[in-house]
């Protein structure tokens, strides 16, 4: 099983991932004679407190995406009041030197993250494909997939 062993940064368990357009959108773009935007390298936080994965609005904007979903979200900042957020279909690559994991279709909710120094949250929906070991005493984490 490929795994990444990384140090926990001051901001938490951070990982660089690739986010691009979903496979279905890639096909639609190609059929329409349009170019497929290159995937973006994105700094993401692995967040077991997030039930869904999220991206900063700058990512869908850079990829030229339109929302294909709407989700209801509850965050501490909204004082217990759920709010509605756009959702985008993207592809996500967890990179590994030998065997990367490519998820061709992932629904990611839009959320302001850039001010926290990250561009994405890897939530439990993506982590269902992984094994995560967090060693707080050593200050490292391992993500296997």
């Amino acid at each position: 099983m490929p795994h990444l062993a990384l140090q926990v940064a001051p901001g938490g368990p951070l990982i660089d991932v690739l986010i691009g357009v979903s496979k279905a959108r890639q096909l639609a773009l190609t059929q329409a004679g349009q170019s497929v935007p290159s995937s973006l390298q994105v700094r993401a936080l692995i967040d077991t407190g997030a039930s869904c994965s999220c991206i900063d609005p700058s990512i869908p904007k850079a990829l030229g995406l339109a929302p294909t979903g709407i989700v209801t979200m509850l965050t501490p900042s909204t004082g217990g009041q759920p709010h509605t957020a756009n959702q985008y279909d993207v592809s996500l690559v967890l990179r590994h030197p030998n065997l990367s994991l490519t998820l061709w279709t992932v629904a990611m909710a839009e959320s302001q993250l850039l001010m926290q120094g990250i561009q994405a949250l890897i939530g439990r929906d993506v982590l269902t494909n992984c094994l995560l070991v967090y060693d707080g005493q050593v200050g490292s984490f391992t993500l296997a997939f």
Binding site: L45, G49, A50, M73, P76, G79, P82, L121, G123
Partner: peptide
Amino acid sequence: QVQFVTRLLGLPC
């Protein structure tokens, strides 16, 4: 179904 994101603190509503 409501999605929870505990990380998103301190943003104005």
